[in-house]
Amino acid sequence: MTETPTGDPWEPGSQWYDGEAGPLVRPYAMTGGRTQPGPTGVRFDLIALVTLDPAGPEPDDTVLGPEHRTLIDLCRPETQSVAELAAGADLPVGVVRVLLGDLLELGCVTVSRPVPPAHLPDERILREVIEGLRAL
């Protein structure tokens, strides 16, 4: 058996899906074993919007892993939701939340949430406004 450029799939301790997929990296390896986004206190709902902070520092490559860089690159062109980032990075949402917590602590991104439904105007009020506008 020949060794592939990225290592031998039959090497002890190496777990591969198949020859094309490469080695399996467990989610806890990407997050350093963490399951929560950190002490920021921010909840990363699926619909929370993440924007690259232009005034934020350019993070050092020694601090960030490749998954952090992927999230930054996805946020660079436009604001993305947490769900979109998870899909774009092909990572589990839990991992993306932890990595976004790191980026938020470093000041690389900002997070905003859409207006909660409880704070939206009542449908009855909106209908009255529409009827009033039609009467004009």
Rank of each mutant, 00 (worst) to 15 (best):
A29G: 08
T31P: 01
T31M: 07
G32R: 14
G32M: 13
R34N: 11
R34H: 13
Q36K: 14
P37A: 09
G38W: 12
G38Q: 08
G38F: 11
P39M: 05
G41A: 11
G41R: 07
F44V: 07
F44P: 07
F44W: 15
A48M: 07
A48Y: 04
V50Q: 02
T51F: 08
T51C: 03
L52R: 04
L52N: 00
L52F: 01
D53I: 00
P54W: 03
P54H: 05
A55N: 08
A55L: 13
P57R: 11
E58I: 15
P59E: 01
P59W: 02
D60E: 10
L64Q: 13
G65E: 02
P66E: 10
H68W: 07
R69P: 00
T70I: 11
L71K: 03
I72E: 02
C75A: 15
C75W: 00
C75F: 02
P77D: 06
P77C: 12
E78V: 09
E78C: 04
Q80S: 08
V82N: 04
A83C: 10
L85C: 09
A86N: 03
G88Q: 02
A89R: 03
L91S: 03
P92G: 14
P92N: 11
P92R: 15
V93H: 02
G94N: 10
V96N: 01
V96Q: 00
V96P: 01
V98S: 04
